[in-house]
Amino acid sequence: MALFNDHISVHRAPLVSDAYGKHRDWFQAVKVWEGLGAALPYRRSEVPELPTRETAVTRITVYLPGAIAWDSADRLLIRGEWWESDGDAWPWRLGSRRYTQLYAKKVTK
């Protein structure tokens, strides 16, 4: 198991309605969890082969201590970079210890 030495915070934004529909208002986001966890790369970055797209997707696996109330729209701040959720969280136990495992992604140009 990786050491929990990455400072991680989980942020949640309210769902708001406007003329275009519903969306998350990230200017009103609140921090719902903060502490030490582990953020580990689990796959290489994906760079599309077609020259029409100029983005790359980086994915990581994140381990947080305890049972975190995770929402699929939450964002993570890890080492000064913003990451988006990439699926549901997975709570698991190791003996008497409880952890939350989740995947996150970041799209860059």
Results as ranks from 00 to 15, higher is better:
residue 13 A to R: 05
residue 16 V to Y: 10
residue 20 Y to I: 08
residue 37 G to M: 13
residue 19 A to R: 06
residue 7 H to Y: 06
residue 36 L to A: 13
residue 19 A to C: 11
residue 39 A to N: 01
residue 15 L to C: 13
residue 2 A to Y: 02
residue 32 V to H: 02
residue 46 E to T: 12
residue 33 W to H: 02
residue 17 S to I: 04
residue 23 H to L: 10
residue 27 F to Q: 10
residue 28 Q to R: 09
residue 26 W to C: 01
residue 38 A to D: 07
residue 17 S to Y: 14
residue 10 V to K: 00
residue 28 Q to C: 10
residue 12 R to Q: 02
residue 18 D to L: 11
residue 10 V to L: 06
residue 41 P to V: 12
residue 41 P to G: 13
residue 5 N to H: 04
residue 34 E to Q: 15
residue 32 V to D: 01
residue 19 A to Q: 11
residue 4 F to D: 10
residue 32 V to T: 15
residue 11 H to Q: 10
residue 31 K to W: 06
residue 14 P to N: 00
residue 38 A to W: 00
residue 43 R to F: 10
residue 28 Q to G: 01
residue 20 Y to Q: 12
residue 8 I to F: 04
residue 26 W to V: 00
residue 3 L to M: 09
residue 7 H to G: 07
residue 42 Y to E: 04
residue 21 G to C: 09
residue 10 V to D: 01
residue 18 D to N: 14
residue 7 H to E: 12
residue 47 V to K: 09
residue 7 H to I: 01
residue 2 A to C: 10
residue 38 A to I: 05
residue 39 A to I: 11
residue 4 F to V: 06
residue 44 R to W: 00
residue 41 P to C: 11
residue 23 H to D: 08
residue 19 A to E: 07
residue 29 A to V: 14
residue 32 V to M: 07
residue 42 Y to N: 07
residue 35 G to S: 04
residue 32 V to F: 01
residue 43 R to Q: 15
residue 29 A to E: 10
residue 36 L to V: 05
residue 3 L to F: 07
residue 40 L to M: 11
residue 23 H to Y: 12
residue 39 A to V: 03
residue 30 V to E: 02
residue 35 G to T: 02
residue 46 E to P: 00
residue 23 H to W: 15
residue 13 A to I: 08
residue 33 W to Y: 00
residue 46 E to S: 12
residue 45 S to T: 08
residue 28 Q to P: 02
residue 31 K to Q: 12
residue 19 A to Y: 05
residue 5 N to A: 12
residue 45 S to N: 07
residue 5 N to E: 12
residue 31 K to R: 13
residue 4 F to K: 08
residue 34 E to K: 15
residue 10 V to H: 01
residue 34 E to I: 14
residue 16 V to R: 01
residue 15 L to G: 00
residue 9 S to N: 11
residue 29 A to M: 14
residue 4 F to R: 11
residue 25 D to P: 00
residue 35 G to W: 03
residue 34 E to F: 08
residue 17 S to C: 02
residue 32 V to A: 11
residue 6 D to A: 04
residue 30 V to H: 07
residue 36 L to M: 15
residue 21 G to D: 14
residue 18 D to K: 04
residue 44 R to S: 08
residue 43 R to D: 12
residue 1 M to F: 11
residue 33 W to A: 04
residue 25 D to C: 04
residue 44 R to F: 00
residue 28 Q to D: 08
residue 48 P to Q: 04
residue 9 S to F: 03
residue 42 Y to G: 09
residue 44 R to A: 04
residue 13 A to V: 10
residue 13 A to F: 05
residue 41 P to H: 11
residue 3 L to I: 13
residue 18 D to Q: 14
